[in-house]
Amino acid sequence: MLALDRVSKTYPNGVEALARFSAEIRQGEIIAIIGGSGCGKSTLLRAIAGLDRASSGTVTLDSEAIASPHAKIGIIFQEPRLLPWLSVADNIGFGLADLPATERRAKVARALERVGLADKAQAWPRELSGGQAQRVAIARALVPQPEVLLLDEPFSALDAFTRRDLQDHLLDLWADTRPTLILVTHDVDEAVVLADRVLVMRPRPGRLFDHIEINLGRPRDRNSPLFETFKRSVLTSLDRSLDRNVPDRDATQGPGQAMWW
C-alpha cells in the first residue's frame, strides 16, 4: 500500500505547490489525478517518485519511507525521454543493468513482444513515431516490474487515435502484473477509461478536493450512458474545484468539454 500523509511542497520562491495531501492507495489500484493547471499534480507525482523531496509530510510504500528514487517505483513522463544513443532494445533494458546479460535479453525480448515492437529492437529512437517511442518508454518502466508506476500526462502529446490505442494497451499491460498505477492527466475521458478512482485536486495551494469512485467493469465502453454519467460527475467536480458555476446536470454538453484543460 502506498500512503501519502499530509504531503506538502513549498518551493524556494515561496510558492505553495502542494498542501497537506493525504491519500491511501491500495496495491494494484488505478488512480487518476486530475485538476486545473498549477494544482500540484506533477509536484505530487515527483514527490512519490522521489525526484523531489516533500517540504513536509511523508510518502510511504509498504511502510518504507520514500525520499529518493526507489526500485519499486517506476515513472513515465509526458515525453518518452528515450536515450538517443541506445537502440530500442537497450533503452528497454536500461534499468536491468544488474541482471546477467542472457536474463536481461530475455526480459527485453518479452517486453518488446508485449508492446508490439519486436521488429524495432535494433532501431534508434529517432526512427520511431511518437506513439512507438512512448510505448518503448512504457516498456522501459515496466520491465523492472515496479509495484507502483507513475504516469505524468503520458499520452497528452499524442493524437487522439494513438492516445486511445495506448490507453487500451496500458490496461492490457497492467493486467500482467497489476502494479499500482497513478496517472496525472488533463483528459477526463482518459481518467474515466482507466481509473478505479479519480482524485480531483484544486489549485492555489494544490490540495485534494474530491474523489470519485468509477464503479465500471472493464473493458469499459466509452459510448455507454453510464460512462457519460461518470464523465459528467468528474467534470462537475472539476468545475466546482475551480469555483465555477456548475451547469445544470442535464444540460447538453458539447464534445469539446470532454477534453478538459
Binding site: 517518485a49 525526484l51 528514487p69 526507489h70 513522463f77 525521454r81 536500461f94 534499468g95 543493468a97
Partner: peptide, 16 residues
Amino acid sequence: RKIVEVGRTFRLSGFA
C-alpha cells in the same frame, strides 16, 4: 536535464 532525470529514476550512482 530530462535525460539526467531518467538516470535518477533508475537510481544511477555518480559514476554510473
